[in-house]
Computed example of a mutant assay.
Amino acid sequence: MPEVIFPGPEGRLEGRYHPQKDRDAPIAIILHPHPQFGGTMNNRVVYNLHYAFYEIGFTVLRFNFRGVGRSQGEYDQGVGELSDAAAALDYLQSMNTSAKHCWVAGFSFGAWIGMQLLMRRPEITGFVSVAPPANMYDFSFLAPCPASGLIINGSADRVAPPADTLALVNKLHEQKGITITHEVIEGAGHFFEDPHMDRMIETVKAYVRRRLTEKTR
Rank of each mutant, 00 (worst) to 15 (best):
D90W: 06
P133Q: 11
R158P: 11
W103R: 03
M95W: 12
F65V: 04
K205H: 00
R23V: 12
A52V: 11
I56E: 08
M1V: 08
T97Y: 06
A167R: 11
N96V: 00
S71R: 13
E81R: 01
D76Y: 05
G67C: 11
T97P: 07
Y47I: 03
Y17L: 08
G110P: 09
A156N: 13
F107C: 12
Y51M: 12
G67Q: 04
E74N: 07
A85D: 09
M136N: 12
R23M: 10
Q93A: 06
E186P: 04
E81W: 09
F192Y: 15
H34D: 07
S155P: 05
H182P: 00
A188L: 12
F107H: 11
F37E: 04
G69N: 13
V104N: 09
V169Q: 07
L61N: 08
H173C: 03
A87T: 04
M136K: 14
P195Y: 05
P33I: 04
F192Q: 03
Q20L: 10
A206Q: 07
K21N: 15
I5S: 14
A160D: 05
V128L: 10
P195N: 04
N135F: 13
Q36P: 01
A87N: 12
R209Y: 07
E3R: 05
P122D: 10
M136G: 03
A188S: 13
R199S: 05
D90H: 13
G15T: 01
F109P: 02
T179C: 10
F127E: 00
M119N: 04
F139R: 02
A52P: 01
E186G: 01
Y54V: 10
A99L: 09
I56K: 02
G187L: 07
R16E: 15
H34M: 02
Q20A: 04
T97D: 05
H196K: 12
F109K: 09
T40I: 14
V208C: 08
L49K: 08
S71K: 13
N42D: 15
Q20W: 04
A111Q: 07
N64T: 02
D138R: 01
V159H: 07
Q20C: 09
H190D: 08
A86M: 12
S129N: 09
G38E: 07
F37Q: 01
W103Y: 15
E174S: 14
L212K: 08
Y137N: 06
P19I: 02
D24Y: 14
I113N: 01
A105Y: 06
L89H: 01
I178T: 12
A87D: 13
A156I: 01
T216E: 11
T40H: 14
H173D: 14
T165W: 00
S94V: 00
T213I: 05
S83P: 00
K21E: 15
G126Y: 03
G69E: 10
M115Y: 03
V79E: 15
Y51Q: 09
E202R: 15
G110K: 13
V104R: 11
F63P: 02
P162D: 04
I30F: 09
P162H: 06
C102L: 12
R66Y: 09
K171P: 00
M115D: 03
Y51R: 15
N43T: 11
A99T: 13
P9C: 13
P195S: 07
A25G: 08
M115K: 00
I27K: 10
R121M: 05
Y51E: 07
A85C: 11
L118N: 09
A52N: 08
Q36F: 02
R16M: 12
F37V: 01
G189V: 03
L150M: 01
Q77G: 03
L61Q: 08
T165R: 00
Y207S: 06
